[in-house]
């Protein structure tokens, strides 16, 4: 059987060039995923109308949905290319596949975008535990299994960008830092040592681009590939910033 399917990819040669789209005919085989398709295109970059092209640039690394590299918009939905099985994707779209880069970040080339803004947001919310140093100071504080079960899911955030891509509040006109950074602030505020810098993080969340810019569309939690309870974090951030501002107003 020589079945094949068409993948249409939105391409862009560099940040200043116009967008264009190219289609590729890919021979079907069972077990394909989107990254394999992109690998096949890289190996033989010939379009559907038999023109030779260049390999499509894309990000990928672990291919196990744990590094967060290969985020792209496939058939209108943002997701990881490695876990996008072609069989499932074809079912959604009646035989044709449409691939675009994420729209919320500057395109570098083709499907590669620059997600630096997300990492900068992590700096803004001070997403770290400020330990005294890396010499031996004994073990860390005790943590109940319950606290660990709350923290672990938040700590699985791989900064892939799905949440901000689907967030209608994260765009050029709005200063919103996005669900991922809010959730990280909540993660470190819950850490027994991280708690010490809690107010600094809440101050950022109370400021421009902070929690007040969330519009509760709740897309983030639905597109998150790691099933992180982002909306829980957002609601907690709402509560914590309110209490923090009250404390601040009444002089702690």
């Amino acid at each position: 059987m020589s079945k094949s399917f068409t993948v249409t990819i939105q391409r862009q040669d560099d940040p200043h060039s116009p967008k264009y789209s190219e289609s590729f005919e890919i021979p079907y085989e069972p077990g394909l995923n989107m990254t394999t398709v992109l690998q096949r295109i890289a190996a033989t970059p010939v379009t559907s109308d038999n023109k030779s092209s260049t390999p499509v640039a894309y990000d990928s690394c672990c291919l196990e949905e744990i590094c967060g590299a290969c985020t792209m918009v496939i058939n209108g939905r943002v997701r990881q290319a490695c876990s996008a099985l072609i069989d499932n994707v074809l079912e959604e779209s009646a035989g044709a596949i449409d691939v675009k880069p994420m729209s919320k970040f500057p395109v570098v080339r083709d499907l590669v975008v620059n997600r630096k803004a997300m990492f900068e947001s992590l700096k803004r919310v001070k997403a770290w535990v400020k330990v005294d140093g890396y010499h031996d100071l004994g073990s860390g504080p005790r943590v109940s299994p319950h606290e660990q079960e709350d923290a672990y899911p938040l700590s699985k955030c791989m900064t892939c960008g799905c949440c901000v891509e689907a967030c209608p509040q994260f765009n050029d006109k709005s200063p919103f830092i996005g669900p991922a950074a809010v959730s990280q602030a909540i993660l470190f505020n819950a850490n027994p040592t991280g708690k010490i810098d809690r107010d600094e993080r809440l101050e950022v969340l109370a400021g421009p681009g902070g929690i007040a810019d969330c519009g509760n569309s709740q897309n983030c939690v639905k597109v998150c590939p790691k099933d992180i309870p982002l909306t829980d974090s957002i609601a907690k951030a709402g509560r914590d910033t309110t209490l923090y501002k009250f404390r601040q107003f009444f002089g702690r």
């Binding site: 209608p168 509040q169 709005s174 569309s217 709740q218 897309n219 639905k222």
Partner: peptide, 16 residues
């Protein structure tokens, strides 16, 4: 409203 960028066409979840 002006700072939002609706994508209800694309992500048709109830909350969206």
């Amino acid at each position: 409203v002006f700072n939002s960028q609706s994508n209800a066409q694309q992500y048709r979840y109830g909350s969206n």
